[in-house]
Structures are given as structure tokens and as C-alpha cells.
Design a protein around this nucleic acid. Structure first.
Length: 639
RNA sequence: GCCAGUGUAGCUCAGUUGGCCAGAGCAGCUGAUUUGUAAUCAGCGGGUCGGGGGUUCGAAUCCCUCCACUGGCUCCA
């Protein structure tokens, strides 16, 4: 008999060799029907795999991450089976599960797959799924595995086998398909009820651009047709909110072929939004002791030779700008930190000045590969909400705390609920990769961990993800559709102070090297606004939106009265415009609704006589009539 | 940069075996209407069919090339 410990702490006894599935059955039939996989002693296994020793057991269903992963990974195998049936001789790369579904990289030889081929693959998958074939695990010797794929002529699997050790190799089969696979898999194909192949893309074998490009087929599957429908609806909704579409519709920004790809042009409304956001951030930062600076858009080549960026990125950057005579070379500013280092270094600094917080909404230019550009989220010219904090190692934690608090406050003010961070630390195996003393690293890493704990921030920790020059923290938010976005970072840097030979005079009258903290909590205005547009579907918070109200006169003769109201509201810092078009009121309301102006003030004779406005909120409808003063008071409550 | 796809009026899109002067809706302009909570009516203007080259009697349509955009891959100080 073996002892199985369940998550609630209860221990049950089973025959040696019982599977998770059998254990689930002993608990409840219903549970057993839903089991997709199980974690046995910390390792995710097939639910059907026999357990031969005492173990802790956690059963996975569609409701949890591991269950979904097994389900989608098994779906990838099902797709492979369908592909093999439809395209004999097809070769397979890798086929993992991903956050939303799975993909399989395939080499179809001379056949060329197009999106039109996907429906018939979906059909085949459903047909095979209905057979309820079991996923069968089998341990094989390396020789046996090699023989199998030599016979099959699949060089990709053979290459994968090269990296595997004999004795650790398993095959999984379902129906007529057998694959090299570590598993785990779901019990059988019967639970795969809804299938959608979402896209087709090229992907380099093993992610290496020098190697052959395979066809990657993305798909997603669900246990219920309704779930697939919900998922597709979500995709539709995301399409409607796409910031590129809304940015054009709301006239926030544009692109121009002549100006150049990846170089956003901010239109008046977008500029208003952006400036308002910047002013807000600037005011909050100044409260925290930041000092704003402005530095030029180009910098001498030597600046970047000193910073080390020239050696590392020079070849892949916009190339130097040359002066006509003197043979000087300048680079478009790809980041603000070297300039800020010069600010720190331009005169002797005392420890009394630390932490010195130098902030700048600095516009930087980076050469991004053309295929990488995407709306406002990936561009070649953008403005960072940047600042560099020069401080002592002891001050790092306090500064992290302040940045965390600032960021949390701002994010909440924007209407985001779900805010987390990833802490990136050294790879403990490879200390030689990093610059800076062990003691400093330990202190900084500890400071980051403690600071995030103090502000109750949900974090994940990634070892080996730190930059060579210091540990960092990346902010993540989830938007209204549940999608995760990476915002900005806070990074500790031991490297630049070294390269720029930055020093301050300590209380001991000796010179010391400051630590530098890079921080841009929102990353860039462009990217942040793209996220904000999609999160709010263009319905920005009232304080931030370009036009807060539109005055809609029912007849042209009421325009002067509307103008009066506009003036009066302007005196109270409430901004908006009068719709002076000779159109029906229905038309004016419709157009204003579509422009996402949050408040409509409808003015007819009744209102003009009474000195009232009739208030309508975008997306909500009529709020009734009130006096101008009542409206002003009500407006303040809406902010 | 690589693979695949797309590119017709300001926007959304018709226009597929190559063939009359390339169409629609919305937007715009002009006129009429002066309107009570999501589209008033009528008329008009607007396109080198992404750019260039080629095949052809004839190209939005076929071929080559360049550009931009979309989805991925690689990259991201």
C-alpha cells in the first residue's frame, strides 16, 4: 500500500500502482471525469500514470493552469495527428501549450499551407477527437527513439533527441500518431470538443534566424463550444478596442509614410491627453523630490562610448549624424541616462545631496526592426517617463519604496486593478556574469524584495533575469480584458557610475561611488497610452479625457447661450466645446456618443429659460436637468 | 531583418476566367430643414486602384521590384 497526501492534508491509502485517476474515482466520479492531469510529488504527471510510492497529490482540471496546459499540449498532439493524416510525410518541430492554446511548428515540405487549409484541419481534429483515443505513455531507449525517427525521416525530432539522455526518453501515442514527448497528457481525446486554429506564421527552427523557417500553426481548444465562443467574442472585443483603430477614430495620433515608420505623430487631442498625463506625473514626482531636467535629442558619440552603449548597440542603432566640416559625430539619443550622468558629474557632489533624483520626459530614438513595429506600443521614437536616482546602497530600499508607491498610486488613478511585478535577480550559478561587488548585489536584491513586501505588491521572482549591471523590477498590469501588459522598470545600476566615474564626498570626507537607479514606471508615454486606450476602450477617465463635455444646442439660436455656459465652465476648469452644426439633436448625440465625450449637455429653450443644462452621460443616457451650479458641483463628484 | 498575408476616395468595403468613362455607405462641401436624448432630406465634389517597371490591342485584375501595414519569428539599452 502507498500513502497519498491530498492538498487538504488528508492521507489516504491505495494499492501500489494506483493512478491519480483511480484515486480521483475513489473520491468522486464527478471529479474523476474532470481530471486532466495531476501533480505527483511536485511533478506534473498523466492522470493515468501508476504511482508506486508514497506521494503528495494534486489533481488538475480545466479550472487550473496545469490542467489547461496538459489539455492544450494534448490538443497540439491531436492537431499533429490530423496534419499527418492530411499531409503524409509532414515533419514536426515542437508543439507546446502556451498561455492561450498551443502551437506546433511543422515542415510541410513542398506543400504550402494557407489559412484556407485550416478549417479542414479543424474538421479532422474533431473527427479524431470523437474517437476518444487514449494518450499512451511509453518509455523508450534512445536507440529505439532514434530508429523510429530515422525510419520516419524526421530530422527535427532526431535533433531534439541528441539533447536527451538515454533512460529519460518517453513517447506518447494516440490513435495513429506517436511523438517524442515528455508529457504530461490528458487521458483521452474525447474531452476536446471545440477546436479553432487561430493563425499561421513562420517560426525559425529552435528560434535561430539562421536556420530553416518552419510553419507555426496556432490553435486553441475547449471542452465546451460555449467557451470557444466566449473566447472568440473576447478576441472581437479586443479588436474593437485596438488602440490603432481608436487612435485614428478619436484623432489622437497618426502615422505618415513620409515621416517614417514607427514615428508617431500626436494630433491635438492626443497631445492634450498626453500632456495632461505628463503634468500629472510631473506634479506627483516633484512632490517626491524629483528635479526635472531637459537634455538634447542628440549626444556626442563619445558619450555613448563612455557609457558602453556604443560598443553594445552601436551597430544596430540609427547611424551617427555627421557635422558638415569638423568631422564630429553625434548619435540620436537612445536613452537619457548618459546625459543624466553628466548632470550628476558636472560639479562635486556631497552626500547631503543624495538621493539626487533627476527626472525627464526624455524623447529617445531606437532603431527597431521593421517587423517589430506596432502602433504606439512598439515605435522608433518615444518619450520615457524617465528618472535616474543617484544614491547610496543604504538608500536603495527607500527609493524603491517611493517609486513603488508612486506607481501604485498612479495606476489606481488610471483605473487599473490588477498590478504586479517581476523581480529579476542574479543567476546564483554564474556570479561572473555580473558587475559590482557581492555585498552590493545582496544588499540591493534584499532591498527590492523587502520594499515590494512592504507595499504588499504581488511579485514573481526570476533568477538569472537581472541585467549584468544590477537587479531590476518590472511592472505588469492586467487590463479590462484580462490581458497582461508589461509597463516600465526600476533597475539598480552599478555600471554607469563606474564608467562615468561618478563620485560624491561622504560624511567621512572621502570620495564614494553612488549607486544609480533607473526608473521609468510607465516605460513610455506612447506605450502606456496605447494600453490605456485599450483598457478604457477610448473612454478615458474624466480628469484625463481631452473634452469633458459637449454642449449640444437643440436649435441654432441657442448657440450664444451654450457659448456662455462653456465660458463659465471653463472658469471652473471644466473643458469642452459647443456643437455648432445645424443638425438634429439626435444626430449630435449620436456623434458625441461615438466620440466618447463623457458628458453631453443638451440645451433647449427650457434650459435656456431656467438657466439649466440637461445632462447626459456617455453610455448611460439622460441624467436629468440641473442648474449650472448644480452641474458644477455634480461634475466635481464625478472626477 | 525573416516567413506569410494585405494595400481601391478621409473611413469601412464592392469590383476575381484581363475589356464600356472604377462603384457603394459613411465622412466632406452646398442648399433646404431649426429639430428634445444614438443617424433630417436633396444635390455636388473627391480615386496616378500603395510607388515604379514589365507582359498585353487593352491591367485595379497577370509578372517583377520597392514601400507601408497586419499576424508571427528573431530582437528590445
Amino acid at each position: 500500500m502507498i500513502n497519498i497526501t491530498l492538498p487538504d492534508g488528508t492521507v489516504r491509502q491505495y494499492e501500489k500502482g494506483a493512478s491519480s485517476m483511480q484515486i480521483a474515482q475513489s473520491i468522486s466520479e464527478g471529479l474523476a471525469r474532470n481530471v486532466l492531469a495531476a501533480t505527483v510529488n511536485g511533478e506534473v504527471w498523466d492522470a493515468t500514470r501508476p504511482i508506486h510510492q508514497d506521494a503528495t497529490l494534486r489533481l488538475h482540471t480545466w479550472q487550473d493552469k496545469e490542467g489547461k496546459a496538459a489539455y492544450w499540449h494534448s490538443s497540439a498532439h491531436l492537431m499533429a495527428e490530423a496534419l499527418e493524416a492530411l499531409y503524409p510525410g509532414i515533419k514536426f518541430g515542437i508543439g507546446p501549450s502556451i498561455d492561450n492554446g498551443y502551437y506546433y511548428d511543422v515542415d510541410t515540405g513542398d506543400t504550402h499551407l494557407t489559412p484556407a487549409d485550416l478549417p479542414k484541419i479543424e474538421e479532422k481534429m474533431l473527427e479524431l477527437a470523437r474517437l476518444k483515443n487514449q494518450y499512451v505513455r511509453r518509455e523508450v531507449s534512445k536507440q529505439e527513439a532514434v530508429d523510429f525517427f530515422v525510419e520516419k525521416g524526421d530530422e527535427y525530432k532526431l535533433e531534439l533527441l541528441e539533447g536527451l539522455e538515454d533512460g529519460s526518453i518517453t513517447f506518447y501515442s494516440q490513435g495513429n500518431f506517436t511523438d517524442l514527448c515528455r508529457g504530461p497528457h490528458i487521458p483521452d481525446t474525447g474531452v476536446i470538443k471545440a477546436v479553432k486554429l487561430t493563425s499561421l506564421a513562420g517560426a525559425y527552427w529552435r528560434g535561430d534566424e539562421k536556420r530553416k523557417q518552419l510553419t507555426r500553426i496556432y490553435g486553441i481548444t475547449f471542452p465546451k463550444a460555449q467557451e470557444l465562443k466566449d473566447y472568440l467574442d473576447l478576441i472581437e472585443e479586443a479588436k474593437k478596442r485596438d488602440h490603432r483603430k481608436l487612435g485614428t477614430e478619436l484623432e489622437l495620433f497618426m502615422f505618415s509614410e513620409k515621416v517614417g515608420q514607427g514615428l508617431p505623430i500626436w494630433l491635438p487631442k492626443g497631445t492634450q491627453l498626453r500632456e495632461r498625463l505628463q503634468n500629472f506625473l510631473r506634479a506627483e514626482q516633484e512632490k517626491q523630490g524629483y528635479q526635472m531636467v531637459v537634455t538634447p535629442h542628440i549626444g556626442g558619440k563619445n558619450l555613448y562610448v563612455t557609457s558602453g552603449h556604443y560598443a553594445k548597440y552601436g551597430a544596430d542603432s540609427f547611424q551617427p549624424i555627421h557635422t558638415p566640416r569638423e568631422g564630429e559625430e553625434f548619435l540620436l539619443k537612445p536613452m537619457n541616462c548618459p546625459h543624466h550622468c553628466e548632470i550628476f558629474g558636472h560639479r562635486p557632489r556631497s552626500y547631503r545631496e543624495l538621493p539626487l533624483r533627476i527626472g525627464e520626459f526624455g524623447t529617445v530614438y531606437r532603431y527597431e526592426q521593421s517587423g517589430e513595429l506596432h502602433g504606439l506600443s512598439r515605435v522608433r521614437g518615444f518619450t520615457q517617463d524617465d528618472a535616474h536616482i543617484f544614491c547610496t546602497v543604504e538608500q536603495v530600499k527607500g527609493e524603491f519604496l517611493k517609486v513603488l508607491e508612486l506607481t501604485q498610486m498612479v495606476i489606481r488613478k488610471m483605473g487599473f486593478e490588477n498590478f504586479t511585478a517581476q523581480i529579476s535577480l542574479r543567476d546564483p550559478e554564474k556570479p561572473e556574469k555580473y558587475i559590482g561587488s557581492d555585498a552590493n548585489w545582496e544588499a540591493a536584491e534584499k532591498a527590492i524584495i523587502e520594499a515590494t513586501a512592504e507595499v504588499d505588491m504581488v511579485t514573481t521572482t526570476a533568477y538569472g533575469e537581472a541585467a549584468f549591471y544590477g537587479p531590476k523590477l518590472d511592472f505588469m498590469i492586467k487590463d479590462a480584458l484580462g490581458r497582461s501588459w508589461q509597463l516600465g522598470t526600476i533597475q539598480v545600476d552599478y555600471n554607469l557610475p563606474e564608467r562615468f566615474e561618478l563620485e560624491y564626498i561622504g560624511a567621512d570626507n572621502q570620495t564614494h561611488r553612488p549607486v544609480m537607479i533607473h526608473r521609468a514606471p510607465f516605460g513610455s508615454m506612447e506605450r502606456f497610452i496605447s494600453i490605456l486606450i485599450e483598457h478604457t476602450a477610448g473612454k478615458f477617465p474624466l480628469w484625463l479625457t481631452p473634452d469633458q463635455f459637449a454642449l449640444l444646442p437643440i436649435s441654432d439660436r441657442l448657440i450664444p447661450y451654450c457659448e456662455e455656459i462653456r465660458q463659465k465652465l471653463g472658469e471652473h476648469d471644466i473643458r469642452g466645446f459647443v456643437d455648432e452644426r445645424t443638425e438634429s439633436i439626435g444626430r449630435k448625440i449620436r456623434d458625441t456618443e461615438l466620440k466618447r465625450v463623457p458628458i453631453m449637455l443638451i440645451i433647449g429653450d427650457k434650459e435656456a429659460e431656467a438657466g439649466h443644462v440637461s445632462v447626459r452621460r456617455q453610455g448611460q443616457g439622460d441624467m436629468g436637468s440641473m442648474s449650472i451650479d448644480e452641474f458644477i458641483t455634480w461634475f466635481q463628484t464625478q472626477l
